[in-house]
């Protein structure tokens, strides 16, 4: 019998261990680097007028993005109002009525595929559907694009969360004479409450950082969002426009807006993830 020496094998093993530890370190470094730069440069741009004033032309100090903050809040809120209830209902269908039906599995498959569609394609779709026929950009179109992105996400998380609820609970509610809708909305929903809220939060976090679907739906505007029937100011498109401009004071404001958006998205995500861990326990 030939006994191979263990030394080269152990050396290779050691090398691989070093490489994979370095890879993990790289991942953390990149995260820290991004957080550091955004916080450092963003914090420098934040001041009182950033939050309460309208944008000013380049060169004039004291400009802010108050209109864009408000616009982003309104657009996201409207998208949530449209996307979440529909997504919840579709999720109920997938989990409660169509588990094994052909329509159910088709819809499940389609939502999985739809979650992978680039968001800019959704923007293009809403443009051809809502902006082109009316000949002007609008905040409504922006909300519609975000709602379309939210719909499959909410539907699939809702389905997954409802599936976690034991069947005995449904059966006992039905046996007590409760109708199906009451069973679902008052018994199953209550049992899955944390999970459902998590899914909704994740969907909101996902769309509130989106830029591509707003580029040619909501566009942007230097004015207050008085009507959603017109181009509506929002933070992410403001970041894009200001960052691409040659003016350093506009670029600074873009960093401030980045810090704002990043903190909002990360806080939402962390809260949702923590809640999700509770559910899975």
């Amino acid at each position: 019998m030939i006994v191979r020496s263990a030394i080269p094998r152990k050396l290779v093993d050691f090398g691989v261990k070093v490489i994979s530890s370095l890879a993990a370190l790289l991942g953390i470094t990149i995260l820290a680097w991004i957080l550091y730069e955004v916080i450092k440069r963003g914090a420098a741009a934040l001041n009182w007028s950033f939050f309460i004033h309208l944008p000013t032309p380049p060169g004039l100090t004291g400009g802010g993005v108050a209109n864009a903050i408000l616009g982003t809040l309104i657009i996201t809120l409207l998208a949530t109002l449209a996307g979440v209830p529909t997504g919840l209902l579709a999720g109920i269908y997938l989990a409660e009525f169509g588990q094994h039906s052909r329509l159910g599995s088709l819809v499940r498959f389609t939502s999985n595929v739809m979650m992978g569609i680039p968001s800019i394609i959704v923007g293009l779709f809403i443009y051809t559907l809502l902006v082109l026929p009316k000949h002007h950009f609008s905040g409504y179109a922006g909300s519609a694009a975000l709602a379309v992105i939210m719909l499959p996400i909410v539907a699939r998380t809702t389905e997954d969360m409802l599936r976690l609820v034991p069947n005995a609970l449904r059966e006992s509610a039905l046996a007590l004479g409760a109708p199906r809708w009451k069973t679902t909305l008052q018994v199953v929903f209550r049992a899955a409450k944390t999970g459902l809220i998590t899914g909704v939060l994740l969907a909101i976090a996902r769309v509130s950082g989106e830029t591509a679907p707003l580029l040619f739906t909501a566009l942007n505007s230097p004015y207050w969002p008085t009507s959603l029937n017109r181009p509506t100011a929002n933070l992410t498109v403001t970041i894009f426009n200001y960052a691409m401009s040659p003016y350093t004071d506009w670029q600074e404001i873009a960093w401030g807006a980045s810090l704002l958006i990043m903190s909002a998205v990360l806080v939402l995500t962390v809260v949702a993830r923590v809640a999700l861990k509770e559910v899975k326990k």
Binding site: G27, I28, V38, I239, V265, L266
Partner: peptide
């Protein structure tokens, strides 16, 4: 490390853009 990687996934595309362009 798992948390850190998950956070990296949550960072919006436009932030990667800002960081990419200026840093």
């Amino acid at each position: 490390v798992g948390y850190a990687i998950e956070l990296l996934a949550a960072i919006p595309s436009i932030i990667f853009g800002m960081w990419g362009l200026f840093v």
